[in-house]
Amino acid sequence: MRIPCPHCGERDVNEFRYGGDATKQRPAHGDKDFQTWNAYVFEFDNPKGPHEEFWQHTLGCRQWFRLKRNTATNQILGGGQ
């Protein structure tokens, strides 16, 4: 699989680190609501199909970015941003 890094362009997947579901909204810093944090940390949509996720170009520019990918086919649907 090739991942489009927004800075460096398309590179092999092993230059990157996966960072999980990017549609989950991180609670605001200082948010004290237990359920909100619990859902953010421990629950996943985990869809079979289009998925927006975080990746980091760890062996390159170290930029974290969002990527749209189809988890049923591994097809890249939308470039990093």
Binding site: G19, A22, R26, Q56, T58, R62, W64
Partner: peptide, 12 residues
């Protein structure tokens, strides 16, 4: 390092 970058770049 990755974790701090993640927080700084993606969330804050």
């Amino acid at each position: 390092m990755s974790w701090l970058e993640f927080l700084a770049q993606c969330h804050w």
